[in-house]
Design a protein around this nucleic acid. Sequence first.
DNA 1: ATCTAATAATTGTATATACATAAAATGTAA
DNA 2: TTACATTTTATGTATATACAATTATTAGAT
Lengths: 149, 149
Amino acid sequence: MRIEDEIKQKAFKDPYNKVVVNLLYTHSYFVTKQSALFKPYGLSPEQYNVMRILRGQQGKPITVSSIQDRMLNKMSNASRLVEKLKQKGYVVREECPSDRRQVDIVITESGLDILNQLEESVYAFNKTVVNLSEEETIQLNELLDKFRG
Amino acid sequence: MRIEDEIKQKAFKDPYNKVVVNLLYTHSYFVTKQSALFKPYGLSPEQYNVMRILRGQQGKPITVSSIQDRMLNKMSNASRLVEKLKQKGYVVREECPSDRRQVDIVITESGLDILNQLEESVYAFNKTVVNLSEEETIQLNELLDKFRG
DNA sequence: ATCTAATAATTGTATATACATAAAATGTAA
DNA sequence: TTACATTTTATGTATATACAATTATTAGAT
């Protein structure tokens, strides 16, 4: 459905102003659907994402600021998010030996378990929710990459 | 820059899983930049959007629930957002005569003023921040529209 | 060695979001 | 009319976000 019809707006000034609204609206559409996926596990989407970052380390510790760098939402608070994951037992936090300012984070077995449990349903959900052919999806990826300059 | 490099992830399972991350990441990239635009005016992006919805009514009142329908973020709280705009003097709220459950909202002169002041810089910002040609932008709009099924 | 600046993480605070519930008004059926 | 469900808005609450400030540590300059 055209974005103009969805939000009942007559027209946009130009494609640039339209695409900005389209990005915001499509994001909201997606995260609203996605939230149901994570809710049963007591994880927020960004918490899931951080767990994936940690798993990608394959046992190697990663500091809080490196997590922050890789997070999808740069403005969120890695320190507090990690604290939430620690409370659930999904990560451990330990002082970095080489630099005592830093804190090393590692995912636990329990964290890996929950990630594996979630993984298949996340993959299936993503494929289902994106109403595009594979070629269109590749094209959309290219345009989004270029969008950010 | 490719999303894999930006978030330092090696690869994605398939284009669908990649495009989901790309959408979230690009959204965050955009709203982070955008926030500086609205801050001097004491408005959040969604507050600006609601003011635009109200202006689109051309003086005709609109109910809180109709505003909610047209908001970009469906989960946000139109009632409280309208209250914030009222506190700033940008909207007035009055009981709907035909249905006393409903509340009619109308933008004020002061609200229209601030909107006009913001408009040019928002248009210019949007055109600048989107690093795409006009054709690519049109294509991205089509793909986002289709994305939502 | 000491002073200063820079960095890493945490904490504080105000606002926003997500979601459930409540309160008021209306519509409908008996 | 009464009873009950539905609709519309507002409120309550827990969590998340945005951003400033603080604390602790390290790096670099003199």
